[in-house]
């Protein structure tokens, strides 16, 4: 389990340094502020409270945007790691393959398909003796 935590820690650190996170935060903040301002306007006529309109708009925003951003970042976690060549390097370390994959997941955002990539599982578990 130690291996998983180590990789997860590194992934989170990488994610925080990643410009995607900053960009996504800024984008969300801008959209949320816009919604808050616009949402307040029609409140009187429709009859719904200003707060309800803002809450509904914000939640529909996050439904659209959050999975998209999560997909982007987790794509970078696994595919970026492979393209840089560090994935193979990690696999040559005393770690089982499932530990590497599991460790990649807790990036700020998660691609549900990533854990079941069949090619990563070929070759079976490596470091049975450690942690786990």
């Amino acid at each position: 389990m130690k291996g998983v935590l180590l990789i997860a820690g590194k992934e989170i650190r990488e994610g925080m340094r990643n410009r995607w996170v900053v960009a996504a935060t800024l984008l969300l903040a801008a959209l949320a502020l816009t919604l808050a301002f616009l949402g307040a306007a029609p409140a009187g006529r429709v009859g719904a409270g200003a707060l309800e309109v803002v809450v509904v708009s914000l939640s529909s925003l996050s439904i659209f945007l959050l999975p998209l951003i999560a997909l982007l970042i987790s794509h970078d976690a696994i595919v970026g790691e492979m393209e840089r060549g560090t994935m193979l390097l990690l696999l040559s370390y005393p770690l089982a393959r499932w530990q590497v994959v599991l460790g990649e997941i807790p990036r700020p955002g998660r691609d549900p398909g990533a854990g079941h990539h069949p090619r990563l599982w070929r070759g079976g578990p490596g470091a049975d003796g450690r942690g786990a």
Binding site: K10, R13, G80, R84, G85, T86, L88
Partner: peptide, 10 residues
């Protein structure tokens, strides 16, 4: 490895 590039952010 032959062409390894570590994460440039770290």
């Amino acid at each position: 490895p032959e062409s390894v590039t570590f994460n440039p952010a770290l």
